[in-house]
Simulated assay, not measured.
Amino acid sequence: MTDLMQHTRALLEDLGHDEEPVGIHYTDAEPAEGFAPKPGVPFNAEMEARNEIDWKGLWGNFSCVLGKVWLARRRKKPASFDAVRYGCVGASFFLGFHKPQIRFLDHYISMGIPDVTPGERYLPSPASVRRFFETIDPRPAPARFCVIKPLSLFAEGETPELVSFFVRGEVLGGLCQLAVFATDDIDVVAMPFGSGCSNLVTWPLRYPEMGRPRAVIGGSDPSCRKFMAADELIFTVPLGLYRTMLAARPASFLATETWAGVRTKIRRSREVWEKKKE
Results as ranks from 00 to 15, higher is better:
residue 30 E to P: 06
residue 180 V to R: 14
residue 275 K to I: 12
residue 247 A to E: 15
residue 160 P to T: 12
residue 51 N to T: 03
residue 202 T to Q: 03
residue 173 G to R: 09
residue 91 A to Y: 04
residue 243 R to Y: 03
residue 62 F to N: 06
residue 21 P to I: 07
residue 85 R to S: 09
residue 266 I to M: 03
residue 271 E to V: 04
residue 159 T to Y: 12
residue 203 W to R: 05
residue 195 S to G: 09
residue 239 L to Y: 02
residue 86 Y to N: 11
residue 251 A to W: 02
residue 180 V to E: 15
residue 236 T to R: 06
residue 249 R to V: 11
residue 249 R to I: 09
residue 255 A to F: 08
residue 222 P to E: 13
residue 242 Y to N: 02
residue 137 D to M: 11
residue 39 P to K: 07
residue 228 M to R: 05
residue 155 A to G: 09
residue 215 A to K: 02
residue 218 G to P: 06
residue 133 F to I: 01
residue 274 E to V: 02
residue 203 W to D: 06
residue 16 G to P: 06
residue 212 R to M: 13
residue 118 P to F: 09
residue 187 D to M: 11
residue 254 L to H: 07
residue 14 D to V: 05
residue 1 M to V: 10
residue 28 D to C: 07
residue 135 T to G: 13
residue 85 R to N: 05
residue 179 A to E: 08
residue 210 M to S: 01
residue 195 S to H: 10
residue 249 R to N: 13
residue 268 R to P: 00
residue 256 T to C: 12
residue 199 N to W: 05
residue 86 Y to F: 14
residue 100 P to Q: 04
residue 219 G to P: 06
residue 241 L to E: 07
residue 67 G to L: 05
residue 261 G to Y: 09
residue 149 K to Y: 08
residue 177 Q to V: 00
residue 119 G to V: 05
residue 176 C to S: 14
residue 185 D to M: 03
residue 204 P to T: 03
residue 238 P to A: 08
residue 195 S to W: 04
residue 39 P to I: 09
residue 59 W to P: 03
residue 200 L to N: 05
residue 3 D to G: 03
residue 241 L to D: 06
residue 163 V to K: 10
residue 145 F to T: 10
residue 95 L to C: 00
residue 268 R to D: 15
residue 90 G to E: 13
residue 272 V to K: 09
residue 263 R to T: 07
residue 80 S to W: 15
residue 274 E to T: 10
residue 138 P to T: 01
residue 113 I to Y: 03
residue 190 A to G: 00
residue 75 R to F: 15
residue 170 E to V: 02
residue 22 V to E: 14
residue 87 G to N: 14
residue 105 L to D: 00
residue 253 F to P: 08
residue 160 P to K: 12
residue 122 Y to L: 15
residue 247 A to R: 14
residue 202 T to D: 01
residue 212 R to I: 06
residue 128 S to N: 11
residue 34 G to W: 15
residue 237 V to Y: 06
residue 178 L to V: 00
residue 39 P to A: 10
residue 246 L to E: 07
residue 155 A to R: 15
residue 215 A to F: 05
residue 87 G to K: 11
residue 96 G to W: 00
residue 249 R to M: 15
residue 133 F to Q: 13
residue 67 G to Y: 03
residue 106 D to Y: 11
residue 147 V to L: 13
residue 81 F to N: 09
residue 111 M to F: 00
residue 102 I to E: 07
residue 46 E to A: 13
residue 15 L to Q: 12
residue 83 A to F: 03
residue 246 L to V: 02
residue 272 V to G: 00
residue 223 S to F: 11
residue 164 S to N: 08
residue 73 R to H: 01
residue 53 I to M: 12
residue 17 H to Y: 07
residue 175 L to F: 05
residue 142 P to M: 09
residue 194 G to D: 08
residue 217 I to K: 09
residue 57 G to I: 02
residue 254 L to K: 08
residue 136 I to E: 02
residue 240 G to W: 00
residue 223 S to Q: 12
residue 199 N to A: 04
residue 102 I to T: 01
residue 109 I to C: 04
